[in-house]
Amino acid sequence: MITRLVDRIQTLRATLWTLIAPPLVWAAHFLLSYLWASVLCAKRGAFATEPALFWGCTVLALVVIVGCGVIAHIQSRVPGDNPPHEQGTKVDRLRFLAYSTLLLAGLSFIGVIFTAVPVLFLTDCR
């Protein structure tokens, strides 16, 4: 079952769009956080007392980023040509895009956590 899933994932297409999927999720989460806080402060004059929306979005963003990372990790290990995997072959191109996606997923994961931390500490609109 797992093997079949791994095989399936390894055949997925990696493109420039999948490369930027994790940072796009970071960007969407960042924008949402900013709008959530500033619109509530401006229109309601008060911080959200129950920020379930924010935490829901944060968890969702992290889950999506981890998902991208896992897929990228599996794809970056597609067996193929010899190390250092920098040849002009389809496998090496896939491994490169997947590995870069994995790195970007790591960065985006940290980025989302960085964005979320202030909400733990700040609770009003001053």
């Binding site: 960042f30 956080s33 900013y34 806080a37 500033s38 402060c41 911080f47 964005t115 202030p118 909400v119 500490f121 700040l122 609109c125 001053r126």
Partner: peptide, 9 residues
């Protein structure tokens, strides 16, 4: 003078 929470992000 933006809210601190915005600055923090």
């Amino acid at each position: 003078g933006l809210p601190k929470i915005s600055l923090a992000f």
